[in-house]
């Protein structure tokens, strides 16, 4: 399993892979917002957590279609399915590696983008914390989307449409927690724990259902 994690990370960082693209897309989304709403710093600071969450969400949808598709095309998926490990565990490790290669850079970049949006230090810290806990859910849900579209040549858009509605709860509680950290009456801990719970829930459900679908698409 260690070997699989290392292999996935290697593939994500070799020439030809788009590990950089996600962060770049995130940056582009954040940059476009002030053009649309105007450069009013107070307004930007207010909507900052929401902008960061939406940007990170969209950026983490980007590479999902490649999660299993390449492995299926070159025949690796069949061999992966024939190992002694349960396929769900293999999917789980692939998800973790995918998140480490694409999600972590987004979280690392988020504080800088927070400065662009004139957010306070506490708001930035809270948003980064919720993103760190919340974005894995996108990958785990995305694994199901990637599994059901693995046989389609152009599954990328369909995955986005399938996955976005399912990650709305994470978005709601993530943004709520970020606001809770700065606006006094609203709580931070409760929505934050909800985000964590959703991620843990899909960490189990996502790989299990993806493995169930993949078993029959592996050949």
């Amino acid at each position: 399993m260690n070997a699989l994690f290392v292999r996935e990370l290697r593939l994500a960082t070799r020439v030809g892979a788009g590990a950089l693209t996600g962060v770049l897309f995130f940056l582009a989304v954040v940059t476009v917002v002030p053009f649309a709403v105007g450069p009013d710093l107070n307004l930007l600071a207010r909507i900052g957590p929401a902008v960061l969450w939406v940007g990170a969400l969209l950026a983490s949808l980007l590479g999902l279609d490649r999660l299993f598709q390449q492995d299926r095309e070159d025949g690796s998926l069949a061999i992966l399915a024939m190992a002694g490990h349960p396929l769900a565990l293999t999917v789980f490790v692939k998800c973790l590696a995918h998140w480490a290669a694409t999600g972590l850079p987004l979280i690392a970049a988020a504080p800088v983008f927070g400065l662009f949006l004139n957010m306070e230090a506490t708001a930035i810290a809270a948003t980064v914390a919720t993103l760190a806990v919340g974005t894995p859910a996108v990958t785990f849900i995305g694994a199901v989307g990637a599994a059901v579209t693995v046989t389609l040549a152009r599954g990328g858009l369909i995955i986005a449409i399938l996955v976005l509605p399912l990650v709305i709860p994470s978005l709601i509680f993530g943004v709520a927690a970020s606001y809770g950290a700065v606006e006094d009456p609203a709580p931070f801990t409760q929505p934050f724990l909800m985000v964590a719970a959703i991620t843990l829930f899909f960490a189990v459900l996502g790989p299990l259902s993806a493995a169930f679908v993949l078993r029959h698409a592996a050949e």
Binding site: L24, T31, P39, N118
Partner: peptide
């Protein structure tokens, strides 16, 4: 740290 001043913004776009 940052204002969405015309000059800064166009340099940011160049960076992208």
């Amino acid at each position: 740290w940052w204002v969405w001043d015309a000059r800064l913004t166009s340099v940011l776009v160049l960076f992208i």
